[in-house]
Nucleic acid binder design. Structure first.
Lengths: 219, 219
DNA sequence: CCGCATCCGCGTTGATACTG
DNA sequence: CAGTATCAACGCGGATGCGG
């Protein structure tokens, strides 16, 4: 029953005491995309047990990271959502996610869900660079297609085509991650056959600014 | 024997598969301050068992995050140090450490070691803001005193006074963390009695730029 | 003393069954 | 749908031992 603590007066140790246990950060990740029901979370975390999810949620609630809300409108039920502190945490773990994304090898036998990519896009979104930008980017990734809708300072990742996209990028997730982090240039990605770009090159350049580390121009 | 994996094609899940297990990130934190011996790490991680530390180190080695080096010079023995990838990771976990530092309550029964504070300072250091800066800041924190030596683009955190400091800040760690993150202004910290500042106010302003989120001026 | 392996008791986790 | 109850399996903490 006693929660194990590192008992160190150190920011990292404290963070790990709070959210370092198994599944916790993945729950925060899922909640970062919006309110979720218990069963939504359960479906998004294959392998977690219901009791553990229940306990984790209660703990996040106790720590003021997430909030339990009795939903009314769509269908009565319980919904979990992040608090402001939870959103701070979601921001703080983005670099870790980016670091991990760069190490997503192609050979990993891992499930690919649109939500994970949506989370990665949200994490790498730079609102300041998106001022005055109104674009729609289509990403096709191994059977998963999704759309990033940039409107000024906001990014919405949709799983249905919201409007005619300014470009379509067909690639795989590791390549997309490398593009976003600037580890390879769009030119290289296309030249090596790992990516295919169709559409407005200027929109592609804006996408790099808004969703990546910016700078380079697409082929 | 089978390492448990989340098996999700998501950057965060991958990062947690690699370094999400207990103690692992704290080991990386310790190594981020420089090469360490097995027993140094052991001493800095009260509660870890020798076998677990050994296994974690081997895993970090396998993943190319840390490296095992047979030391010669000071005394023969084995030393562990971060690889470039490990340094990337250390960078990536800094925001998490900052998030946790803001939640280091005064009531926590936790050990305070100069190294943790040194790590926090390193994590918040912005080399770009330190161009042309040559300062020495003294921090006195509940019995622990240390010095931050800024020289152009580099920060060295010392546990012995390297030279006459440009200012001395006496406070506690939560307040220091809040100052660094900009959650309170130096003015407030001093006015509320939580901090005491003695020395060159302009050096204090530079410290905020270099070690914090910058902007405000000290009282 | 340093670096590490082995063993054991226990807390945490994963899977299933069951309930309002 | 939103959990609680239960139990087996695994990971971890602590002790011990052993070759440099």
């Amino acid at each position: 029953m006693s929660r194990r603590s590192y008992a160190q007066y150190c920011g990292l140790a404290r963070a790990l005491d709070l959210v370092g246990e198994r599944w916790t950060l993945l729950i925060v990740r899922d909640l970062a995309l919006g309110p979720r029901r218990f069963t939504d979370l359960l479906a998004g975390l294959p392998g977690i047990g219901t009791s553990l999810l229940s306990e984790r949620l209660r703990h996040l609630e106790d720590q003021g990271i997430a909030r339990r809300v009795v939903a009314r409108r769509p269908a009565s039920g319980v919904v979990y959502e992040l608090t402001d502190e939870g959103r701070d945490l979601a921001q703080a773990m983005s670099p870790l996610a980016t670091w991990g994304a760069a190490r997503l090898d192609a050979d990993v036998e891992a499930e690919l869900r649109p939500e994970w990519v949506a989370y990665a896009l949200q994490a790498s979104f730079r609102p300041a660079a998106a001022a005055g930008v109104h674009d729609c980017y289509e990403f096709r990734l191994e059977g998963v297609t999704l759309w990033a809708l940039v409107d000024d300072g906001t990014l919405t990742v949709a799983q249905r085509r919201p409007r005619r996209p300014d470009f379509t990028l067909t690639t795989d997730v590791p390549t997309l991650a490398q593009l976003g982090s600037g580890r390879i240039s769009p030119r290289e990605a296309v030249a090596s056959g790992r990516a295919r770009f169709r559409g407005d090159p200027e929109a592609g350049a804006r996408a790099l600014q808004v969703l990546g580390s910016g700078g380079d121009r697409p082929a």
